[in-house]
Every structure is written in C-alpha cells, then in structure tokens.
C-alpha cells in the first residue's frame, strides 16, 4: 500500500493534519466494531435463512415492502443532507451546516415514526415472538425465528438511529455556537452514514426475501 503522494513531510508534522488523522482513524476503528456487532446478527440471519428458506420467504411477505422502501429512501436522503452539512462545515458556513444537520435529524425522526407504525402493526397481527405469537399456517418452523431476527436487527438499528440523531443534533448546535470545529461534524457524520449502510443491507434481507 503506497503512502498518498499528498502527504509531504511538512504535512506529517502539521498538528492540524495529525489531529485529523487521529480522529478519523479512531472513528473508523470504532465503526469496524459496529460492523462486527451487526455482523454477528447478519451471520445468524444467514444460517437460519439457509436452514429455513421457505419459512423466511413466507414470513417476509408479512412485512410492508412499501413502508420499508420509503424508509430506505428517507435514510439515503438523510445521508445526502449529512454529507452536505459536513461540506458546509468545512467551508465554515455554520448556519447552513446547522440547518442541514437538523434536516438530517428530522429525517431520522421520520424513519423512526414509520418504523414505530410498522412495529404497531406487527403487534396487532400477533407477529411479535413470544407467548402471544401466532402465524397461519401454524407450525411452520423458522417463521418465529424470522420475526425474532426482524425485531432484534431493526431494534438494534433503531437504537443506533436514536444515538445518531442525538449526536448529530448536539454537533449541529455546538458547531453553530462555535463550541466545536468542522472535524467534529465530519466524525459525527461518519457514524450517521454507517447507520445508513446497515439499513441498506437490512432492507432487502428482511423485506424482499
């Protein structure tokens, strides 16, 4: 792996450049642990889908493809507004950056609202795993496991959306008030984008079996 040509000796000694590299590296290492956290669940999903392909297809049919698709679009657009917020921050356009980040937070809230509506429907249809679970045709092995994975995976993801929204909102306000710099905004953005990437895989694997 060659060292990028843009890094001269002077660059390597510049505290601002070093600070930037350290912050990016630290965040990416943390994100690698997040990938493996969700990865364990994706691995479990892979095994059970391999064991019960028909049950997974049957159960997946009970998820609302349209709402899942809309939610995917909402998160993709929120990643776009976040990227623009980071770009504005790097140009020191603090007010614009704040508004773009707040738009990102609102889109996150819209995502959670739609997700909550879906959860409510699953509860009404007795599709929440546990004593109250019922599914027709009864006795299809693997169906309840699909819904268990659905709730655990989307639930853990929703928790990440909530944490991401909080982090982006705090960065938006602090950046506007000059309590932090553009680097903080960029690092916060990385987290938001990763949460989007996780959903990009969850959508086809859960809704489009």
């Amino acid at each position: 792996m060659s060292v990028s040509a843009s890094h001269s000796r002077a660059d390597a000694l510049d505290p601002a450049v070093r600070r930037r590299q350290a912050a990016s590296l630290g965040m990416w290492l943390f994100l690698a642990t997040e990938v493996l956290l969700f990865g364990g669940l994706f691995g479990t999903y892979a095994v059970y889908r391999h064991l019960f392909p028909e049950a997974f297809a049957l159960a997946s049919g009970h998820l609302d493809e349209l709402l899942g698709g809309i939610n995917t679009a909402v998160l993709l657009v929120s990643s776009y507004t976040m990227a623009l917020g980071v770009a504005a921050a790097e140009e020191d356009r603090r007010s614009l950056s704040r508004w773009l980040m707040l738009a990102t937070v609102l889109l996150g809230a819209l995502f959670l609202g739609i997700k909550g509506y879906e959860y409510h429907h699953k509860a009404v249809e007795h599709l929440v795993p546990g004593p109250g679970f019922s599914f027709e045709p009864a006795g299809t092995e693997g169906v309840e496991m699909f819904f268990l994975l659905y709730f655990v995976m989307t639930g853990l993801h929703a928790l990440h959306v909530i944490i991401g929204m909080s982090a982006v909102a705090v960065a938006a306000v602090r950046f506007r008030r000059r309590k932090c710099d553009a680097l903080t905004v960029e690092i916060t953005g990385l987290y938001w984008h990763l949460v989007d990437i996780v959903w990009v895989f969850l959508f086809p694997l859960l809704y489009l079996v």
Binding site: S6, D14, A16, V17, R20, E90, E91, D92, R178, K179, C180, D181, A182, L183
Partner: peptide
C-alpha cells in the same frame, strides 16, 4: 476556536 480551514480541510 479559530481554525485555519485551509490546512485543516482536505
């Protein structure tokens, strides 16, 4: 906090 955005932003 005044950053020199020229060197910081890459």
């Amino acid at each position: 906090m005044a950053e020199t955005t020229t060197t910081n932003s890459r």
